[in-house]
Every structure is written in C-alpha cells, then in structure tokens.
C-alpha cells in the first residue's frame, strides 16, 4: 500500500459541511425581494460567516457570472461583477499585495463604490478647470 506523503483532507465541494450555503442563498433571495419592493440595498460580508473549505467557492459557482464585469484600481485591485441574477453583485477587494481583504455579496442596483463620489467630482472639476485655463487642451487638439 502506498501511503500519501501528507494527509489528504477529503473534503468535497458537495459536502456542505456547515450547511451555511443554502441559508446564505435564502438571505440573498430575501434581500433581492426587499430591493424590488422597497428599493433597499443590502450587503453580506462573507467573512463574518463560518464556511468550510470549498463552501465559498460553491456559493460563488452557484451565483455564476452575469453581464457586467468591472475592475477597479483603488488601493489595489477590486473585482466587481453582477452575478447571473441581476441585482446580485459579488464584490472582492484586494490589497496591493493581491490578497483578498474583503468579499461581499451586494444586493443593489449598482454597488455604491462604483458611483463617482462628491469629493472626487469636486476635485475633478478643479482639475478640469485647471487644464482648460492652462490651455493644455489646445495642444492636444
């Protein structure tokens, strides 16, 4: 008999160890219903729920990928996409070392972080004015 050099943890994706995947899907379903009826958004932090190895992947596979995929460069990468269920988004934040610092399921029309922010727009207005004043635009054209 050949023994494995290291222990093989035989935990399959289908094992559903913590039984938390289904309740999570129900929570998402209810949040989606709320969104439709009241317009209220909800965010689920996947890190706050105990999940066995493979269970997060299982949930993500079940949610699938839909029409919108966005990449964000803000203090490291962020991956945001709409799942195959419109209104349900998966948001994954990475840091500059490309490790995950947060993963959320957002049930909303569009994730808050995608919207342009007041402060940033104010800054951009100033910058645009500056560009126009300095006459940079003419050189470009």
């Amino acid at each position: 008999m050949v023994t494995a050099p290291f222990p093989q943890f035989n935990i399959q994706n289908g094992d559903d160890l913590t039984r938390n995947v289904r309740p999570l899907l129900y929570e998402i379903r209810h949040a989606l219903q709320d969104l439709l009826e009241t317009g209220e958004s909800r965010v689920v932090d996947l890190r706050s729920i105990p999940l066995a190895p493979g269970e997060e992947e299982k949930l993500i596979n079940l949610l699938g990928c839909g029409e919108v995929v966005v990449k964000l460069e803000a203090l490291g990468l962020s991956e945001i996409y709409e799942t195959q269920y419109p209104g349900v988004w998966l948001v994954t934040h990475f840091n500059t070392d490309s490790s995950i610092i947060g993963r959320f399921v957002e049930i909303t029309l569009i994730p808050e972080i995608l919207k342009a922010q007041q402060e940033d727009m104010k800054d951009s207005l100033l910058q645009l004015d500056e560009a126009l004043l300095s006459g940079d635009d003419r050189e470009v054209v």
Partner: peptide, 17 residues
C-alpha cells in the same frame, strides 16, 4: 492622493476587519 472611492473601499475592508 487617496481618492474618496479608495477611501470607501478601505472603510469596507475596515468594517469587515
């Protein structure tokens, strides 16, 4: 030079943390 959007991302990670 950290944008507001980056700051919000930072806040989301902080809340989770």
């Amino acid at each position: 030079g950290v944008s507001r959007r980056s700051f919000l991302k930072f806040c989301a990670a902080t809340a989770s943390m």
